[in-house]
Design a binder for these strands. Structure first.
Length: 701
DNA sequence: AGAGTGGGCCTTTTT
DNA sequence: GGCCCACTCT
């Protein structure tokens, strides 16, 4: 039987509550925060105070007497969870650490560690990051003895996407291949075989990849009715943020956990669904009212973030989206300046423009902290980084390799991983291959012997293993044995272990391998000091495996440094954030939207939503720029402006012509040289059928 | 046989 | 800048 949990009437006991909700919230937000319970769908437009609403809702629940550990708050990033919970803490002025809050993966990890035995793992399992998983998949391809040359067989990355897609969507592998990867259809049997080997190998070595954290979590609840009931009883209120980016597995898990009390509040914006490539199913939010017919639907449409001018651009873009909850953002702020469209000749000139404009804005009194540069893909940040460096403008890049995915960090962590889970073949392989004369083959032989031993680490430090070491490599290997012995003694003190590794022969390896070894050594020190806050190796490894890009930044600068710097980020990573001044670059058709999506309707819809996300990050000023000429690996390519700019009515923006390019510095060109003569480029080769040759000079009119 | 090196090819988005 | 492949070195 379903049983409704009735909240205490907050207004009836005025004076008892610390927070004056009526005063703090808008008329749109108040009913959401003070609702009694039951299924709730909140469609929250960009900048509509979603975080504030969820935060107050949690505070309200706590004030109404719901015990902390009976609230489940699932967010998209750890950062969002941390931010919301610390705001709740500030509102209530009490410790709220009892609340179950975090990402799906984080909470899945917690539950799986507790009940690992029930699904055939032990609680010290290792979480594979993307590249570890890729490596294991490639090893599985080898094990399957597939002739990858006879027919183009998918690479590790592609296989990983296929497998992850199958797990996250709950669809059969055959299905996924047939519909989404038709080019591999003749290889279906082989791919299934690899999947089987990969799955078994993970089980054998006590490894879980990101998708497994969700899949086995669901399986655990689905296959253990008592356990499912236990957690179902436990969570009186379930809140899910960014619901538009959940996949069907995540939705299933939440439905199971909320089945008992049916107090499930999902918050999201279908127009900001941008993660379908990893299985997000934006119909979860569209269909939520069908799954819960007794749902109460709320809309937050008043935008408190951006000027009406910026919202006009956002609304123009999204009105053309095919499937959505009807909504239009209503401005709540006074009029500001019009967004600016800036065509530039080259990417270097685009970079110079951004940098120069930043300096001008700073002269006018804006801090660099108020500025961000957004782009579609990582590689589009290269020239900007060079230009900002050249001009001494401090910046923080939030894309590309994450801190803990850099080789030296992964090397050190691999040492810790084998101490925690000695059957982790990926981690053993990694550290063994660091030693001279040990490559994939020898590393595998050594691992096989370790795996058979009852205590792999003891086996490694023993005499017998030396038989497998190639002659001439004994000395470094013995030093490595010494290190492992030392780590065994320091087991349980992560910071000490990191210190031992970075003072071992590994330090020499860094010096001889990397030109910037000094920086890398500093990173390791940083990692060591970061580790001191963890009580156990397991906690540290879990936190690092599940940290997202932005959180890893905090490890690099120690978390406290408050220096002035602008931010460079992909649009995906910018979701949920805001800046007074935003530069959106590379708005050339084929770059944003990406040409890879051109022929796929769903993906084109998602590109549009991505553009909507990008534009709505800006509070006061928005610069939309694109380069006309792109020099790539296959010559120079002429581009035209993005279709999203094409669609804008001319009243919606100002166009700036950049005539002189004082700071234009293409490598090999001098600053005082004349600017590029565009007429040279009229006849150049144009890449792909989707680009049209156009007279560049027309664009400047 | 297996480890190490250099050159050519290509570039979506991530917990 | 990364990945793959072909090549050389031990």
């Amino acid at each position: 039987m379903t049983q409704k949990y009735i909240l205490q009437p907050a207004f009836g006991v005025a004076g008892k509550l610390k927070i004056d909700y009526r005063q703090a919230l808008t008329p749109e937000q108040l009913p959401i925060v003070t609702a009694g319970g039951g299924p709730m769908l909140v469609i929250a437009g960009a900048g509509s105070g979603k975080t504030r609403t969820v935060t107050y809702r949690v505070a309200y629940l706590v004030e109404s007497g719901v015990p902390l550990d009976r609230i489940l708050l699932v967010t998209f990033t750890n950062k969002a969870a941390k931010e919301m919970l610390s705001r709740v803490e500030a509102l209530l002025q009490r410790d709220v650490r009892g609340i179950w809050g975090g990402t799906f993966h984080h909470i899945g990890n917690l539950m799986l560690r507790k009940h690992a035995k029930l699904i055939g793992f032990t609680s010290n399992f290792t979480i594979l990051d993307r590249s570890d998983a890729k490596e294991l998949i490639e090893a599985s391809v080898v094990e399957a003895k597939i002739d990858t040359k006879a027919r183009r067989f998918p690479k590790g990355d592609a296989l990983q996407d296929i497998f992850g897609f199958a797990l996250n969507t709950g669809r059969h592998l055959t299905d996924i291949i047939a519909y989404n990867y038709a080019q591999f259809e003749p290889l279906t049997l082989e791919i299934e075989q690899v999947f089987k080997i990969y799955t078994e190998r993970k089980k054998k070595n006590n490894l879980l990849d990101f998708d497994d954290l969700l899949y086995y979590w669901w399986k655990l609840l689905d296959s253990q009715p008592e356990l499912c009931e236990h957690y179902g009883n436990k969570f009186l209120h379930v809140l899910v943020d960014e619901y538009q980016d959940t996949n069907s597995l995540q939705a299933k898990i939440m439905n199971l956990l909320a089945a008992k009390h049916r107090n499930i509040m999902v918050v999201g914006d279908d127009s900001q669904s941008i993660y379908s490539f990893r299985g997000a199913y934006f119909r979860n939010i569209i269909n939520f009212p069908k799954v819960y017919p007794d749902v109460t639907v709320f809309k937050l449409e008043v935008n408190h973030r951006s000027t009406p001018e910026i919202l006009a651009i956002a609304n123009t873009a999204i009105v053309l989206a095919k499937e959505k909850f009807e909504k239009s953002l209503k401005a709540n702020r006074p009029s500001g300046s019009k967004p600016v469209v800036v065509p530039l000749t080259t990417v270097y000139e685009q970079s110079a423009f951004v940098a120069q404009r930043m300096l001008e804005l700073r002269e006018e009194g804006h801090s660099l902290n108020d500025m961000a540069v957004l782009y579609r893909s990582h590689y589009q940040s290269m020239e900007i980084q060079m230009e900002l460096t050249k001009r001494g403008i401090p910046f923080e890049v939030r894309s590309g390799l994450r801190f803990f995915e850099e080789a030296h960090i992964k090397d050190v962590l691999a040492h810790l991983k084998v101490m925690h889970n000695p059957s982790d073949e990926i981690a053993w392989g990694r550290i063994l291959k660091l030693l001279p004369k040990i490559g994939p083959k020898t590393a595998d032989k050594i691992f096989q012997q370790l795996y058979r031993a009852s205590e792999p680490c003891k086996e490694l430090t023993g005499e017998k293993i030396l038989e497998l070491v190639p002659s001439g490599a004994e000395r470094p290997f013995k030093q490595f044995q010494g290190l492992i012995g030392e780590l065994l003694e320091k087991q349980g003190q992560p910071a000490e272990m990191i210190k031992a590794i970075s003072q071992s022969n590994y330090a020499d390896y860094l010096k001889t391998t990397y030109a910037n070894y000094r920086e890398r050594q500093e990173d390791l020190e940083q990692l060591g000091s970061y580790a001191t806050q963890f009580k156990s190796l397991e906690e540290l490894l879990s936190a690092l495996a599940l940290a997202s890009g932005m959180e890893s930044e905090n490890i690099v600068d120690g978390g406290e440094a408050e220096t002035e710097a602008c931010v460079l980020t992909t649009v995906h990573q910018a979701k949920g954030l805001e800046w007074p001044i935003v530069f959106l670059i590379w708005l050339a058709d084929g770059r944003f939207p990406s040409y890879l999506s051109f022929n796929k309707e769903d993906e084109m819809e998602e590109e549009r939503r991505l553009f909507y996300v990008a534009v709505t990050r800006a509070k006061d000023e928005l610069y939309l720029s694109y380069p006309l000429i792109y020099s790539g690996y296959d010559g120079e390519v002429l581009m035209k402006q993005s279709r999203y700019l094409e669609e804008l009515p001319s009243w919606a923006f100002d166009k700036w012509e950049v005539e002189e390019s004082p700071a234009f510095l293409k490598p090999g060109r001098q600053a005082d040289e004349a600017p590029i003569d565009l007429s040279e480029y009229r006849e150049i080769r144009v890449k792909g059928a989707d680009f049209e040759a156009i007279d560049i000079n027309d664009l400047f009119k």
